[in-house]
Design a protein around this nucleic acid. Structure first.
Lengths: 333, 333
DNA sequence: TTGTACGCGTTATCAC
DNA sequence: GTGATAACGCGTACAA
């Protein structure tokens, strides 16, 4: 910029004024400066600018598993919403690994991001303390982080699973297997709570062995389903608490030589972008993913534009049970 | 840092030396400085550091559609590979839109990324000229950009489709529909060329109406397949040139009341992470996605570490035809 | 081993 | 409308 100023025989202040439009610059100088800029091939140094301005116009986004279609969609939506208003997005995926997660957040913070959107992999003590010490605008999405007073966008997981389980019960099912996500996540806990709520409401006894941990990945879902399917008194229905585990569960059902919904009913959490390639079409709880992403982006944008000390806002979105063809009514004995 | 120095009664140089480990600092001062750091809650200003060092340790990654599982995987792999060595990744998705693409790349460049990895949405003239003017390390992945002399990682698309089409021909198919990706992309062109190669090699005439544009998205694949299926002399097989289009095509086949592979054989490009939820299991060309991502990351890392003026390297990876159950041999009339 | 002083490229403030 | 200059916070010669 100094070079430009020299070439155009003006001061750097004038060049800066022109570039940023802060002040009117006379046509004569404007022309000289623009000529100098293209002659030299000058490009504004964004780092110096950020140093001066104290903002990078960049936000950090950390999800627990970017390959999970749900999070892919979240990332895409947020990235798009933020780009539109001039923010760049730095993305990390913790792969459901709490240690990696801490490292990645540090990496993000170390890049001086203006704000953070986080879908926590789980609540190790570290994370909570750590995030609490971060003084930058932040919103937590999908899963909450107990005791952390920041903006959040979450689904009403408990209610959603209550609905789905009640639907299964309404169909006559009593032994309903449940493939659970990690209980270190709020989603894992809330969804399980919804399952128990439904059982309690219908006075169906809760059976420990019907709840199997699926660790939120496909392989875990497979194992959990197998566990369920090989019990002497096999459940007549299974609820799977997220999309990837469902894929594993469906595979297990096939491998066990069973057929859904003829031998066993399946309902699950999370709809798929390509739901109809699945056979049978799955009855699921759909999350309004795009809306969730937009809300998260907007909450952060609000914080970024000054609303620093308002009380945290906690948005809770309702899921929607989509009945398709993977559940069958149980003939009463 | 100045505050830390004052609190610890030392100079900023000493603090800096301790933090970066450039010089040995006496134990006494070390202790005082560390105490001061945690007392004040000091955090190094990454922007000032970048300004001084001239590097952000951040790279920009632009893909044409982050929701496409292929690119999701690319993003995840690259992000992981680069994070491991201390780089953060700024992600953009152009949504197969060349205008958006230009904007996003500008956004990335404006954040002073140290390097760029790009999967181009298409080659508008803009892009080529624009990228040529970028003086930062760069690697192009998946699709090439004609006339741009930079490192690239691509699949041998032509050969892969040649193999798949030849396989179909070997099964006795003569009327083979082809659902094409955009011809403004190198992948679109190369894959189509492979199809023609196979026909030519087997002396099967090329028929214009058997090639339908699917624009690389699901909806386009559906339309293209429908077009093919409603022709008076319906093709006995279809090759679909990417994953999303395949999903659309399978849907079209169902909607047309046809069954695969009984009524029509299907082979396609790109394997799916969850290939076995598809019915029937699809015969596809699998790309070694992770390897592609790793290669791209490594090429960039090489450039970043000084190999600035070596000749561009062009890695070409071989695809692999995975025969499953979506293709059937045609009974000779 | 430690301290001083300068430069990185901008932008904002104030004089002119 | 324009120009001089002081920060922004860090790394690093160079001097002590």
């Amino acid at each position: 910029m100094l070079d430009v100023a020299r070439t155009a025989q003006v001061s750097v202040a004038t060049v800066s004024a022109l570039i940023n439009g802060t002040t009117r610059v006379s046509p004569a100088l404007t022309q000289r400066i623009e000529a100098a800029i293209s002659a030299i091939g000058y490009e504004r140094n964004a780092i110096a600018r950020s140093l001066k301005l104290g903002a990078t116009n960049t936000i950090g986004l950390m999800v627990s598993d970017i390959r999970n279609p749900f999070f892919t969609d979240i990332v895409a939506t947020i990235q798009y919403a933020l780009n539109r208003v001039g923010y760049a997005v730095m993305v990390c995926s913790s792969d459901e690994n709490t240690e990696l997660q801490d490292m990645q957040i540090k990496l993000l913070l170390d890049r001086a991001v203006d704000g953070l959107i986080i879908a926590p992999a789980g609540e190790d003590v570290m994370l909570k303390d750590f995030l609490a010490s971060v003084r930058r605008p932040m919103v937590i999405v999908d899963r909450t982080c107990e005791g952390l007073d920041v903006d959040t966008v979450t689904l009403d997981n408990r209610k959603a699973v209550l609905d789905a389980t009640s639907y299964l019960i309404g169909l006559g099912h009593r032994r309903i297997g449940y493939i659970a996500g990690p209980l270190i996540t709020s989603t894992g806990r809330d969804r399980l709570a919804g399952y128990r709520d439904a059982l309690a409401a219908a006075e169906v006894p809760y059976v420990d062995e019907l709840v199997q941990d699926g660790d939120s990945r496909e392989a875990g879902g497979y194992r959990a389903a197998m566990q369920l399917l090989t019990q002497r008194d096999r459940p007549s229905a299974i609820f799977s608490a997220n999309n990837l585990m469902t894929i594993g569960a469906m595979r297990a059902i096939r491998d066990a030589g069973l057929s859904c919904p003829d031998d066993i009913s399946v309902a699950c959490f999370d709809d798929f972008p390509w739901a109809d390639v699945f056979r049978p079409h799955l009855t699921t709880i759909a999350q309004p993913v795009q809306a969730i992403g937009e809300y998260a982006a907007n909450l952060l944008l609000d914080r970024l534009s000054g609303k620093a000390d308002e009380a945290p806002r906690r948005l809770v979105i309702q899921g929607r049970l989509i009945v398709r063809e993977s559940c069958r009514a149980l003939a009463r004995p």
